[in-house]
Design a protein around this nucleic acid. Sequence first.
DNA 1: AGCTCAATTTAGAGTAATCTAAAAAATATT
DNA 2: AATATTTTTTAGATTACTCTAAATTGAGCT
Lengths: 219, 219
Amino acid sequence: MGLSYAEENYLKAILKLSGTPDGTVSTNAIAAQLATSAASVTDMLKKLSDKELITYQRYKGASLTEDGQRIATTLVRKHRLWEVFLVKTLGMTWDEVHEIAEELEHIQSDRLIERLDQFLGHPKFDPHGDPIPNAQGKYTLRAQVPLSELKPGQEGIVIGVREDETSFLKHLNEKGLTVGKSIKVITNDDYDNTLSLHVDGHELNLSGKVARNIMIKTT
Amino acid sequence: MGLSYAEENYLKAILKLSGTPDGTVSTNAIAAQLATSAASVTDMLKKLSDKELITYQRYKGASLTEDGQRIATTLVRKHRLWEVFLVKTLGMTWDEVHEIAEELEHIQSDRLIERLDQFLGHPKFDPHGDPIPNAQGKYTLRAQVPLSELKPGQEGIVIGVREDETSFLKHLNEKGLTVGKSIKVITNDDYDNTLSLHVDGHELNLSGKVARNIMIKTT
DNA sequence: AGCTCAATTTAGAGTAATCTAAAAAATATT
DNA sequence: AATATTTTTTAGATTACTCTAAATTGAGCT
């Protein structure tokens, strides 16, 4: 009754793309997300529909059933718990863990995940600031976002950084960006997230690379 | 250039079965080990031979090349490191971790494994007493074996136990079996490892289940 | 040497996931 | 409303792994 890696990946993609009110996702959107062909997606949607993990009608897109939602949310939970493990326990960097967690999330063992969760102290957010669903699929809304994701006009407070290399912290100190400071975004480039912001009445410019490493609590 | 799960499992099976001087393994032996058909094994042996991971001649069996050996040994290393992690770090029991490690060993990331090894303190043996190859494929010979694997006549010293539940330790204390005691095996049932042994001049009977949990250094 | 039997390989086929190219349906445009 | 365009599905093939049944090879026995 276990699903294949491919089936699990489709469910996760559908969950991720379910933005519309009814949670419907188009064939092409899934194909783009999974870097596969639309024809392959159609085949898989039929299969998942037969297993009652999604509702699907030809030409009308697909949406997760309760069962499908439960499975997809569990995958997200596993993925994010493993990311916390890789960063917090093994000391890897936040930008190298995604791919590995993409593999680890398919490991089949509920007991393993509950033990891991306990060992990590039931974390509520992963290293990217995304919430970790609990075993019942519920999660806290995201408390912090990378500075790079704020839109012009948004304000917030610096909560921390992802990289804790001394050189990086020193760099921020020199710019006057320390934990607790209030900031307001002026511009944020669509393409590379280069951005400008106000801190203590000054204007400051940051590269996208730096901005992605600074976590903000919006106000 | 990553191998499929199936290919990796075949290499591991061949390594495990390589007992003969030239390390040759028969088709049927592999089929039995992997619970698959001889026909499937033949197909896979051809493929692994094309990739130069084994040497293979029709009707003559297969043996690992240096490349094949390196890959198989790395799989064993990963498997055993994960077992240590599951038991020591997550507190799972030695008998429930094998299956999970069987999945974890296929995760592709050298950096992950080296980090894990470091986090665990470069362990030399897994929870079953089997040696863990280092990154170069070398390993220390097994220092301890479960009491259940000793043959009649063999002697040794009690090194420790796998389960460290108080009730289990209490049970052993009552029998006079504590760390440091010298023992000699009298009989060991082929089927269920029920065994009798001498300790301090007394004769003692143990179930296979208990004997598998007591680690011995042979003398 | 010839025979027998077990081990192994080949032949033919099935399942899961994928692809490209062509057909069909839905949507947008004039 | 008719046509053009985009989206989606179907058709037909491919790769990886597996199976059963039949054919072949090798090894032991008389």
